[in-house]
Design a protein around this nucleic acid. Structure first.
Length: 879
RNA sequence: GCCCGGAUGGCGAAACUGGUAGACGCAAGGGACUUAAAAUCCCUAGCCCGCAAGGGCGUGCAGGUUCAAAUCCUGCUCCGGGCACCA
């Protein structure tokens, strides 16, 4: 056994052993419980960053833990390989995205392998591989047949200079990131998936997911956004024609307080008004500038313009003016809203700005109302006033009565409204799955026949940032109509990359099947037992995956209702973001490793400079490590300097998995030092315990009563088993940082509390406690630092392979104590402690405490009001 | 703006259901070993007052409930994630 800890050698040997034995190849085996452990697959951005290391280490800890618990574990890996960064890299380097992507995959795969993850590489997949994305196309066609896919127009960001559609990320302060041109909204035809058909089930089924974090379920529920209200019509006349403007409201009880209405710029009423009034036309045009992002729309200054069109209030018959409002969203509800300034904060602000009337119609427990300033309670539920026949009704009564009256008039009804919108999947981009449609002048939009799948994406394109590269490829575009055989044009839009990631988990079960999307092995492995990934995916990716699973189920492809039984949302790994903005508004991000933060004489921060040129750079705060913000930290240096086990231990030890983590490598030394100590410790005692190890592993015990003759050894053993109990608790609640601490505590207990005297009984007990404790320690460490655990397990002779060792359980006998320590408080302040027999009752404890000298100093001359005894913990004397 | 989280020593954090705040580490200071350094080992340490014994304060801020609050409630501040074309 090497006296020095040599991680590089140990890790090479352990990995070679796992490779040679095919240790992580998962085979369907009905005789053992299956455990499908999946971490979100990475985008091949170039190098791993710390977020990846954290994600995959967490997944690997669970994988190895469940293996030791006796499960047949599948942990696969693949590549979310289509996407925008590859096109950006292509523009920067004049290289096809395919070449860049495959090179990145090769490099990152080596990095993952060097970290020793227990992955079944036989099931590896990449979404940019036609063998994968043909099934995107195949399922798209099935969904088209079922009416789940349909075509309609949608709004996109348009860069008028590059003549290209921009992603939201590429719009910075309303301008194109490369050209600096003001971005415009543009309506184009796109394909949509009817996720709203599944809204009810996606919401209700959240209750069937006890293994999901509450916060994620809450976010999804709010996103789906089921609300109950009333949908009704305001009739109006335009150009001699009778029309209706429909609105939805959750506050029908305030309908008598409507003083105006507002419509979105894209609403037909706004468009009609724009034709008659140049001021309206100018405002509508103004609204069409800027990005389509909701965060932008929600934070812009509320503005509007009157259309000069009046509608009739369906209950009062009043004339109500319609305004165009830049805050009304066409995508939600009817694209038109009734405005009740007295009871809605946005309407209030709008009414104040344009001098519109404000009419209070709800009394909230008599709280005062003033049109001077908005108060939070104006929006509370209350009782109708100023509302004619509805006066005195509460929210539910008024809503019922008003809905009934509207129904009677044929003007409206109660309605369930969803916030969720259908999923637009068309992207005017090159590096994605081609949408399998052919456009024929005679036949229209014709689906590509299954026999012609996949529609293969040419891999030699080099995008230049303008237009749509696929549209420029005559060899791709020009084709024959599958229906009539005449010349036709292939669809050049590709699919949203969320399509790729919505079902990859089921493809891992049967990645080698060339004839069908999925097969019977999906029934064996699905659903995923444990899914691990960043909290940033709490809504979109997870919701799309849930939707896709239900679609596959309804098409008879999969039995599971839900894809992921348990979900662990890992906190983001954050790092500071540095950038410079050029004259035309173009932003360049700089990696923190290339930036030096300056401090003044007082040690205060005084800006930052780029090391390369000494010129200042701006800080954009801290944010999640990403390619686009160039603030990732490459783990390679860490792995090379300290080894994979140190990197894994450190990332686990430094923070609980669900908590976001501001990256700092301060403390890596401590993790490395611990592994060195572990090695030195095992090396020092190996010979002493080697003979005892097989007896411990066979389950033999020391002679009864040894604890009384060797109290120090018994205390050490008790601590090992106490910590083990805590470790097991923490393992099951995913608090791996305290599992790592627990390993350190076990080593401390074994190293510090055990010493041996000359007599042979003590020697035997010492060897026994050490042999048992070290065996526990190595198994606790095996999921976190598998290489060193593997090497030491073999070196000391515990067994051939720690992968197959059973997970340890604490011995209840080791935890027994005759006396326990209670904390004594007087008036809630800690004033001492007291030793009591473990089974002392409350009365006995109370007497002991009141007789205690330390307590008497504080109770002397005071009346004792009460004594609170918390069993096993403390006693509080109230005076 | 809306939805969801978070804030505890100089730093990362721990404290399971309201019951000893700061486990386990990092950095720091002191010491041992060494010609010296590295490595390793031992000791100290929340903050303030005090030689000490001891006392006071303390979990982002302001209140509240309780014998007892990091933990529960109300109102804020700041930070992070998401907002449908980054993935």
């Amino acid at each position: 056994m090497d006296p020095q800890y040599q991680p590089q050698r140990i890790e090479r040997e352990a990995q070679a052993h796992w490779d040679a034995t095919g240790a992580f190849r998962a085979v369907e085996d009905p005789s053992r419980p299956k455990y499908y452990c999946l971490s979100m697959f990475p985008y091949p951005s170039g190098k791993l960053h710390m977020g990846h290391v954290r994600n995959y280490t967490i997944g690997d800890v669970l994988t190895r833990y469940y293996r030791m618990r006796g499960c047949n574990v599948l942990q696969p890996m693949g590549w979310d390989a289509f996407g925008l960064p590859a096109e950006n890299a292509a523009i920067a380097n004049s290289q096809p995205p395919a070449k860049w992507t495959y090179e990145n995959i090769a490099y990152m795969k080596r990095q993952l392998q060097s970290l020793g993850f227990a992955l079944d590489w036989d099931r590896e997949l990449a979404t940019c591989d036609p063998k994968y994305y043909r099934w995107n196309q195949w399922l798209f066609l099935r969904m088209l047949e079922k009416g789940i896919v349909y075509k309609k127009t949608g709004v996109v960001n348009w860069d008028p200079v590059d003549q290209t559609v921009l992603a939201n990320e590429q719009v910075i302060d309303g301008r194109g990131w490369r050209t600096g041109a003001l971005v415009e909204k543009r309506e184009i035809p796109m394909y949509y998936m009817r996720i709203t058909d599944y809204a009810e089930e996606l919401l209700a089924a959240l209750d069937t997911l006890p293994g999901w974090p509450e916060r994620v379920k809450l976010m999804q529920a709010n996103w789906i956004g089921k609300s109950y209200g009333v949908n009704f019509a305001f009739p109006y006349e335009l150009d001699g024609e009778r029309r209706e403007m429909r609105v939805f409201t959750t506050r029908a009880d305030t309908i008598m307080g409507v003083t105006f209405c507002a419509v979105a710029a894209e609403h037909p009423l706004a468009e009609a008004a724009a034709k008659r009034d140049p001021k309206v036309a100018a405002f509508v045009a103004e609204c069409k500038r800027g990005s389509v992002m909701e965060a932008d729309l929600a934070t812009i200054e509320k503005a509007g313009v009157p259309t000069g069109i009046f509608v009739t209030h369906p209950l009062t018959g009043e004339r109500i003016e319609v305004w165009v409002g830049n805050y009304v969203l066409m995508g939600y509800g009817e694209g038109a809203v009734m405005a009740v300034p007295a009871h809605d904060e946005r309407d209030f602000a709008f009414a104040k700005k344009y001098g519109l009337p404000i009419k209070p119609v709800i009394d909230v427990g008599g709280k005062p109302f003033s049109t001077d300033a908005w108060q939070a309670w104006y929006a509370d539920y209350g009782v109708c006033v100023n509302s004619g026949k509805y006066d005195g009704l509460d929210y539910a009564e008024a809503t019922d009565a008003i809905a009934a009256d509207l129904h009677q008039l044929g003007k409206g009804d109660k309605q369930v409204q969803w916030r969720l919108r259908d999923w637009g999947i068309s992207r005017q981009r090159y590096w994605g799955t081609p949408i399998p449609i052919v456009h024929c002048d005679a036949c229209g939009d014709v689906p590509v026949p299954d026999a012609d799948l996949p529609v293969v994406l040419p891999e030699d394109c080099v995008p230049d940032g303008s237009g749509n590269p696929l549209a420029k490829r005559a060899d791709f575009v020009n084709c024959k109509c599958p229906r009539c055989g005449k010349p036709a044009r292939r669809e050049t839009d590709t699919m949203d990359t969320f399509v790729d990631s919505s079902w990859y988990y089921s493809r891992y079960c049967c990645a080698d099947n060339a004839r069908s999307m999925v097969d019977e092995r999906v029934a064996h492995w699905m659903p995923v037992d444990q899914y691990i990934g960043g909290i940033e995916h709490a809504i979109l990716h997870l919701l799309y995956s849930r939707f896709w699973t239900k679609v596959m189920r309804d098409l008879g492809l999969m039995a599971a209702d839900e894809p992921f039984t348990n979900l662990l949302t890992q906190g983001m790994v954050l790092n500071e973001i540095f950038y410079r903005k050029s004259a035309n508004g173009r932003i360049t991000y700089y990696n923190p490793a290339d930036v030096e933060v300056r401090t003044d004489d007082a040690g205060k921060r005084a800006g930052a400079i780029l090391k390369a040129d000494g010129q200042p750079v701006e800080s954009d705060g801290i944010g999640t490590m990403s390619k686009s913000k160039n603030n990732g930290v490459d783990p390679q240096a860490l792995i090379e300097q300290y080894g994979a086990d140190t990197a894994r231990f450190f990332i686990i030890f430094t923070s609980p998995p669900e908590q976001s983590l501001e990256w700092s490598d301060a403390g890596v030394e401590g993790s490395h030092r611990f592994l060195k100590r572990l090695w030195t410790f095992c090396h020092a005692y190996r010979d002493a315990i080697a003979g005892t190890v097989p007896r411990v592993m066979k389950g033999e015990h020391l002679p009864a009563g040894w604890e009384r003759t060797h109290p120090r050894l018994a205390a050490a053993r008790r601590e090992v088993h106490e910590v083990l109990g805590q470790v097991n608790y923490d393992m099951n609640r995913f608090q791996f940082n305290t599992v790592a601490s627990g390993a350190m505590k076990i080593l401390n207990a074994l190293a510090a509390r055990t010493s041996v005297s000359d007599d042979s009984v003590a020697l035997a007990a010492w060897q026994w406690v050490l042999a048992e404790g070290t065996g526990i320690l190595l198994r606790v460490l095996a999921p976190i630092t598998p290489h060193v655990a593997h090497a030491l397990w073999r070196e000391i002779g515990y067994g051939a392979d720690i992968l197959h060792a059973p997970w340890p359980e604490p011995d209840p006998h080791a935890l027994e104590q005759d006396e326990i320590t209670l904390v004594v408080q007087v008036n809630g302040k800690r004033r001492g402690e007291i030793r009591v027999p473990k089974d002392a009752d409350a009365t006995a404890i109370e007497q002991l405490v009141l007789a205690n000298e330390a307590v008497r100093r504080y109770t002397e001359g005071k009346a004792i009001k009460k004594v609170v005894v918390v069993p096993g913990r403390l006693v509080n004397v109230v005076v």
